[in-house]
Simulated scan of single mutants.
Amino acid sequence: MSLVKRGTVYGTLLNFRGELDALGPKMNEAPYKAAPQAPVLYVKPANTWTENGGAIALPAHVAEVEVGATVAMVMKSAREVAGYLLMNDVAIPHESLFRPPVKFNCLDGFLGIGDRIRARNEAGDPAVFKLEVRVNGELKQTVRFSQLVRPAEKLLADVSEFMTLAEGDMLMLGCDVGRPRVRVGDRVEIKMPALGTLTNTFVAEAA
């Protein structure tokens, strides 16, 4: 299944239980003083998009980045999911909690996008999705979507309460803790049988 129209790509923060557990008491500190009551979203603009098999360039000042293996819902309409797609939501390691971390998440090429959209009725229940993340062929992380705070349908319903998604928009389900870190020269493969394999290599930015 191919994506005829590619719209806006949205990331979701704090949607894995491990993320919330890792923050612990920080969630109750100023300025928020509580865990978020609605989904926390951010945008991965078009400058971040890298196709499957493409190289992701690291600027000279960035020694390493985090791999964010996840799955995105691809929208058919405002509330209807066309299918699911693998993504690698790359970010510079940081601990920013208080505003959208644009300078860490939105560098050129910092989103690997799979080329295989699996229709909703073929992919199965997202709650049982499991991704394997390999760096240079070695298994570094297993992401289990049974650990989501908001499962896919709940996430979509809650997001739809405050914004309207359009055809081709993509809503990521979130990234778990334990994200592998990679450097220039590393090759990352994110794999799930139903969705194929997303592969990206990390290279030095051209001078």
Rank of each mutant, 00 (worst) to 15 (best):
G168V: 14
V177W: 00
N200R: 09
G24K: 14
E19K: 09
V40R: 02
A35G: 02
V71T: 12
G53R: 10
G24P: 11
P193Q: 13
T201E: 08
V65G: 02
F104Y: 15
L156Y: 07
L131K: 01
T70F: 03
E122Y: 01
Y42C: 05
F162K: 05
A204E: 15
L195C: 00
G185T: 14
L131G: 01
V203H: 03
K76S: 12
H94W: 09
E122T: 11
L41N: 07
M75H: 04
V143K: 00
R179L: 06
R99V: 12
M192C: 07
R120D: 14
P59Y: 08
G54N: 05
V71L: 02
L198M: 10
Y84Q: 03
M172P: 03
A55D: 15
V4N: 08
K154H: 06
N28A: 10
C175A: 08
F98W: 07
G109V: 14
E161M: 10
G185E: 08
Y42E: 08
N15E: 11
K140C: 06
G54P: 06
A22Q: 11
E167H: 06
P180Y: 08
Q141N: 06
M1H: 09
N88L: 05
A166P: 00
D21K: 10
T12E: 06
F110A: 03
R150L: 11
R118P: 01
G53W: 12
F16L: 04
F110V: 13
P25S: 14
P126D: 13
V188K: 08
V43N: 02
I190T: 05
L198H: 06
A166K: 13
P45S: 09
N136E: 09
A69Q: 05
C106V: 15
E122V: 07
G168S: 10
R187Q: 11
V43F: 00
Y84I: 12
P101L: 04
L171C: 04
N47S: 10
T199D: 04
E66L: 07
L111C: 12
T142Q: 10
A207G: 05
G53K: 11
F110W: 11
N15I: 13
M1I: 14
G124F: 09
R179I: 08
L97H: 10
N105H: 11
E167I: 08
